[in-house]
């Protein structure tokens, strides 16, 4: 009898908490997340009506490394920790339902040593954001991990604040202590401060990062390679050539990855046939020498604002050689 009462109480509390949590979720999305970098990129993209010629997709390497102010009629629609799964669904949604993409001439996608690492499968946060683009059920089936993505679905609708305290802290920080000044954000790009050349022991710093990031995962995850192929096919279905950017990594970091994965060449070969597809251009020469200049980086894998300007300028010149720009 007592246990029944206890379980009933527990059940009622769970229901009340679910309602409470759903209200909190809505509040979180409409107040705190509204001003987040993530949603501002999306708002910025939607509210502007200027036709786009070049669209950059990808993760933080793209976000930090491409400054669209230096590439006319371009937009950087990347998000931190984005994998090719998210890229595929986001791009699909943008190409199919936004008129700004009708005028596109090229799609720029990332393709460097870190792009296909298994660790990228860990992150689908904030779930409510990805719920707009991804079909969690379908992703769960593809990755053969249905329970996790069912949970993500539940999380997206009732607990969007889960594990997202950092957004709340950031919001409170700039509202209360930062004078309400929003971090600059330029057509999806976030200029990063910092200078990696100031780090004295770049080798061990890089090795630690590789160890922490990649863990026991693969350098090229088959699921990500598969979604990479699907993304390229999607672009081609819309008659859009794909330009793959080999985002620069500090040389020490690049070597640390190669040391961590002695079979790196073999693993990278699994995406080689996609890279060699007609209509796909891999830009390696454009970025190769940047790896030797740590002052262009804010950490071993990400360009700082100076590095982003340098890379964006180079891309602009390359584009000008392909298509005359106004």
């Amino acid at each position: 009898m007592m246990m029944r009462k206890f379980l009933l109480n527990l059940f009622v509390f769970s229901l009340i908490f679910l309602v409470f949590s759903s209200i909190l979720s809505q509040l979180f999305e409409r107040t705190i997340m509204r001003d987040s970098m993530l949603l501002r990129t999306e708002h910025h993209f939607l509210k502007d009506s200027e036709p786009l010629l070049f669209l950059f997709m990808g993760d933080s390497h793209t976000k930090d490394g491409i400054n669209p102010d230096y590439i006319p009629q371009s937009f950087n629609f990347s998000t931190t920790k984005q994998s090719y799964i998210q890229t595929y669904y986001t791009l699909k949604s943008l190409l199919e339902s936004h008129s700004r993409t009708d005028s596109l001439q090229m799609i720029f996608l990332p393709c460097d040593l870190t792009t296909f690492g298994s660790y990228r499968l860990r992150n689908f946060d904030p779930s409510f954001y990805w719920d707009r683009y991804l079909d969690f059920w379908e992703v769960g089936q593809t990755l053969d991990d249905r329970p996790r993505f069912l949970w993500k679905q539940l999380e997206a609708s009732t607990m969007s604040y889960l594990n997202n305290g950092s957004y709340i802290i950031e919001y409170v920080g700039w509202r209360w202590f930062g004078g309400g000044k929003v971090k600059p954000q330029l057509n999806g790009h976030t200029p990063q401060p910092g200078d990696f050349s100031l780090i004295s022991d770049q080798d061990s710093f890089s090795r630690d990062r590789v160890q922490r990031l990649f863990g026991e995962g693969q350098l090229v995850d088959p699921h990500l390679a598969d979604y990479f192929a699907r993304t390229v096919e999607l672009c081609h279905a819309h008659d859009l050539p794909v330009v793959l950017l080999n985002f620069p990594l500090v040389r020490a970091y690049e070597l640390a990855i190669k040391e961590y994965y002695p079979d790196w060449q073999e693993q990278m070969q699994t995406v080689e046939h996609i890279v060699n597809t007609p209509g796909v251009i891999l830009l390696t020469e454009l970025t190769n020498d940047m790896s030797e200049t740590p002052r262009w980086f804010h950490d071993p894998g990400h360009l700082n604002s100076g590095g982003a300007i340098e890379l964006s300028t180079r891309i602009k010149s390359w584009i000008e050689n392909q298509i005359p720009l106004e």
Binding site: F17, F20, S21, L24, M159, Y161, L162, N163, N164, G165, I168
Partner: peptide, 8 residues
């Protein structure tokens, strides 16, 4: 519970 979920 909400604190636990958000900041855990």
């Amino acid at each position: 519970c909400a604190l636990f979920l958000a900041f855990g």
